[in-house]
């Protein structure tokens, strides 16, 4: 199943140098496990987002491999230590090869 709606990201827009900021992300997705059967007894094939990546100014600082045990509409929260102004890029990779991205700017005072 393709990704349906835009992911949501919550990041502070400003931080002091050295400050650790929390980033919260949420994306709509069934995260079909491949364990379920439909009414005719046929197994519904697995279709999940299997990788989430967070980078800042092009440098990856956090990665998460998601498996079938991750809930539908996956939520992921994590941290980043601010050092310079720039832009976050977040990427969600689907089993079907499609990708969804989001970005957010951070100003370091």
């Amino acid at each position: 199943m393709a990704i349906k709606s835009k992911p949501r990201v919550k990041v502070p827009s400003e931080a002091k140098a050295g400050e650790i900021v929390e980033i919260k992300t949420l994306i709509s997705h069934e995260m079909e496990t491949g364990q379920r059967k439909d009414s005719t007894g046929k197994t519904i094939p697995r279709a999940i987002i299997n990788k989430f990546t967070a980078s800042f100014n092009g440098k990856t600082f956090f990665e998460a491999d998601w498996f079938t045990s991750v809930s539908a509409n996956p939520y992921q929260a994590f941290f980043y230590k601010a050092s310079e102004s720039g832009e976050f890029t977040f990427t969600w990779k689907d089993d079907d090869g499609s990708e969804q991205t989001a970005s957010a700017k951070l100003t370091v005072a």
């Binding site: 600082f61 498996f67 809930s71």
Partner: peptide, 20 residues
């Protein structure tokens, strides 16, 4: 369930997710 890869830039080796 999940595998995280952290870097020193993560600041904190902590993360939250929701699982089945």
């Amino acid at each position: 369930v999940v595998t995280y890869k952290f870097t020193p830039q993560s600041g904190k080796a902590a993360a939250s997710v929701r699982m089945r």
